[in-house]
Design a protein around this nucleic acid. Structure first.
Lengths: 253, 253
DNA sequence: CTGACATCTTTGTTCGGACATAGTGACATT
DNA sequence: AATGTCACTATGTCCGAACAAAGATGTCAG
């Protein structure tokens, strides 16, 4: 059986602004995404085809395609040649994105607070030198922080940065997220490599996170690179297993 | 300091095939990716600009852009307006993709084997009904498998599927990966939602995975949808923490 | 009734062109 | 010496058009 085609009302794209600096394809994608999440475009329904959509609303086909592609990449739509474009699922979770835990918590409305457990400038060992691309013995900043969400200890964050950032103070680190501080210096993280695993908590971690003896922790180690390809930060994080998990939507390409 | 620009030799794209069904942009991207991984395009170097690249090798600019975009999405390249395109990092790990554990292991050359722990057809409880989009009380197939890599127990896989697949036999399940069996029936997984977490192993899991008392496990629960948006499979997996972890590369958009 | 074939629909790929925008650096002005 | 201006370069966005390929459907011969 062919799925029903949902026809968008002719005023659907009325409020978009062609003179805005926000790209047209992005404005279109945003409106479509909202319609999908509001189930104005129900799951399983077929979308009007690209050409008709473009003609009816006055967009070129490449622009319509690009907007649709954004939502395909997010896992909201699926395209099939000869068939059309269908809505997959309304409840797609936000992806694991290139954000810090601090930003994650802020966005979800849980007030993040930070306690600086230790902050020291030391010399890079072999591992730190390899990860950061500096020489063994170079000065690096190592900070261990305890991150709370709504007053509950959530994660232990152990990070190492190049000496350029050795002047980050305990006060700054307690008040702001690490990525926020880096951005304030004009450093933008563009690419990161990370690995998610599990192990048993150490005594120190149990103490900080108020976990029972023998408890598991969720671990994430990440190395982050800025836009010039330089390693800016690497760290090992561990999360209280009952309070945190990583969600993602995977899309077949 | 301006980064050095690497000029591709004029025979760089000589072996691509315009009559091949493999898209041109994809062939270009593949060759560029190999050059980056082989460090013929060293990390930090600038790529020749899009227009010149197109003219020199006879591609249109959209085609060149699309090829480059593939590698930007993979985290191998970074583009900056007014500056150019730079190579970020040669060692990017393969992403968490929409593959089954079985395929993962096959690709990395570790011989996967499977033991079917249990296989039963039962009626859907509330959770199964919600995840699969069927009615409570409908028949579903539930299978628990133990997956080995090179003879070592690696993961316990607990999956539930709609009644349509209730005829999967123990033999089939022991010999093939689940996604492989589904594909043989014409079902392709297109989108999946998953969550990665950690907890302590249950007694049963410790027994199956030969883990010590109190050991942690890495958990992954996934719901997979086919191209029509129907839920095809959901499951809870748990992995031996010392033997498995999830790696991914994140790219800022 | 069934299978082979043609046709239609819709997305996939590729081309060519135009203008906008953000860095960069040089030059002129204050 | 600091700052503003301008040209240059490279990517970002948008348009229009054409053909290819895949899936669905209808047609017709056997």
């Amino acid at each position: 059986m062919a799925q029903a085609e949902t026809v968008l009302p002719s005023d659907f794209f009325l409020d978009l602004d062609r003179s805005s600096p926000v790209p047209l394809y992005y404005q279109i994608a945003t409106r479509l995404e909202r319609a999908i999440r509001d189930e104005d475009l129900p799951a399983g329904s077929r979308l009007e085809n690209e050409i008709s959509l473009g003609q009816r609303f006055g967009f070129s086909r490449p622009t319509v395609r690009r907007a649709i592609q954004e939502l395909v990449d997010k896992g909201l739509l699926v395209r099939r040649r000869g068939i059309g474009t269908q809505v997959v699922h309304g409840q797609v979770t936000r992806n694991v994105e290139l954000t810090s835990l601090y930003e994650d918590l802020t966005q979800t409305g849980q007030g993040p607070t930070t306690e600086v457990v230790s902050r020291e400038v030391l010399t890079a060992d072999e591992n730190a030198a390899r990860e950061l691309g500096v020489a063994v013995g170079d000065r690096v900043l190592r900070i261990v922080r305890l991150r709370y969400a709504d007053g509950v200890p959530l994660a232990v964050l152990d990070n190492t940065l190049p000496s350029e950032f050795a002047d980050f103070t305990e006060e700054e680190l307690a008040e702001r997220g690490l990525y926020q501080l880096l951005r304030a210096r004009g450093i933008t993280i563009r690419v990161a490599k990370q690995r998610i695993g599990a192990r048993n908590a150490t005594a120190k971690e149990r103490e900080l996170l108020a976990l029972p003896k023998g408890s598991a922790v969720l671990t994430m180690s990440r190395t982050a690179f800025d836009s010039s390809g330089r390693a800016v930060e690497f760290g090992q994080h561990c999360y209280s297993p009952d309070l945190y998990s990583f969600e993602m939507t995977l899309v077949d390409k």
